[in-house]
Design a protein around this nucleic acid. Sequence first.
DNA 1: TTTTGAGTTGTTCGA
DNA 2: GTCGAACAACTCAAA
Length: 491
Amino acid sequence: MRCGQRARGAELLDTPASILWLHHDLRLADNPALLAALERGGPVIPVYIDSSEDEGTWAPGAASRWWLHHSLASLGAALQTRGSALILRRGPALATLRTLCRECGADAVYWNRRYEPALRARDTAIESELRNAGLLAECRGGALLVEPGTVLTQDHAPYQVYTPFRRRLLEQLQFATARMAPAKLPAPSHWPDSLELAALQYLPQIPWDAGLASAWQPGEAGAARQLQSFIDSALGRYAQARDQPGIRGSSRLSPHLHHGELSMRQVWQAVLQSKQPADASGRAKFLDELVWREFAWHLLHHFPHTTEAPLRGEFTRFPWQQSPALLRTWQRGRTGIPLVDAGMRELWHSGWMHNRVRMIAASFLVKNLRLPWQAGARWFWDTLVDADLANNTLGWQWVAGCGADAAPYFRIFNPVTQGEKFDPQGLYLRRWLPELARLGDEDLQAPWLAPAARLRAAGVELGGNYPLPIVDLKDSRNAALAAYKDMRGAD
DNA sequence: TTTTGAGTTGTTCGA
DNA sequence: GTCGAACAACTCAAA
């Protein structure tokens, strides 16, 4: 209704067109930049620019690009039903925006702020360059619950421990109700040229994406469905079920949140409004995970170098091993440790890995193989559909013990123990390791310990159709502890 | 300035 | 099988 009034006003006032520059906010509901552009009144020209060169070494990886392709298709269709369209361009963002303004006679650019270190600097530069050129440049915060940098200790220092950060964030958390998507977007009299979606070449050359397509529905509509189905069927048991990789106990919202198909406050409010009393513990636990996501972006804001280097400086001299062969074995899910391999194959196949298994697979790389966490972070970056610079950085540094509020170094996951605890019936292992599926529960987590006759009966040949462990879990654990001790003693 | 309490997700060992 | 202690101190945040 409000939008209708504005559209009428726009015709009367003949306001020049505005560019709505979309990137990781691929939604029409609760989109602050879109709302601001609509409030101005003139025609709105939604644009997506492939500006990978602006993003440096952290341009979207292969799995994220696949997601982007489908999310952009979905957004374009949603815009069409609202009398609008999505213009696609490629090139450096500033130059492309200038060109577009010239072509469309637009005098304003609206967008939602990004917080990746490289893009933060770029956005600031774009803002001032556009203003210098006499254009209106309006940047909004739409991706997070609170702006990074605004949650500070009494000494105005950044929090480095989660619990006090959460306490402070919740104290200062306040925001308006999430806004609905507009029914119509005022269109310009002439649309500028657009690339075809296929021209962005976000889809893989060789079709490895069938597993992704069967696992996900990118786009705002798919995100809304996922949110609703999570609240209806998994939120109540989330506190326990989220830790079991064999069942659908987690929200699976991460790729939707990463690409901005949902805003944080939409999710937050939808979860708060779910009224079933049985949801209370699950709800609290899930909101906690959202605050962790905020914490990750807050940390990256204050410590932008942590995408490459450990937050705790002493870890720069940790004796990591260099072994492309071992790294590749881990990447391919051929380590001979079933839970690690299952996770790595889930990742490769579906572009996602269950959170608990992420910790275990990461711990195995960093501690048992003693390969640098940065190598793991890179692989996740390329293969995860939810690859998120802040979460990925925090997660890897947490596992490696070199980050904020990190796990003490001596906490080393044992994949066998973890499997017995969180996948006791082997649902997860059998799904991703069909060659082990006929082993009994008692042999599944550590097949190298199983009697030869039982292996034979299950059709498992270690070193044949399934590898022997590439390291001994106990020995490699002790070696990691020793390396840690060396690092600390080397002052 | 000093002190105090606390800190996502674990494993192993020995009683 | 179950339980508590040890692991190793250290840093953070607030009083």
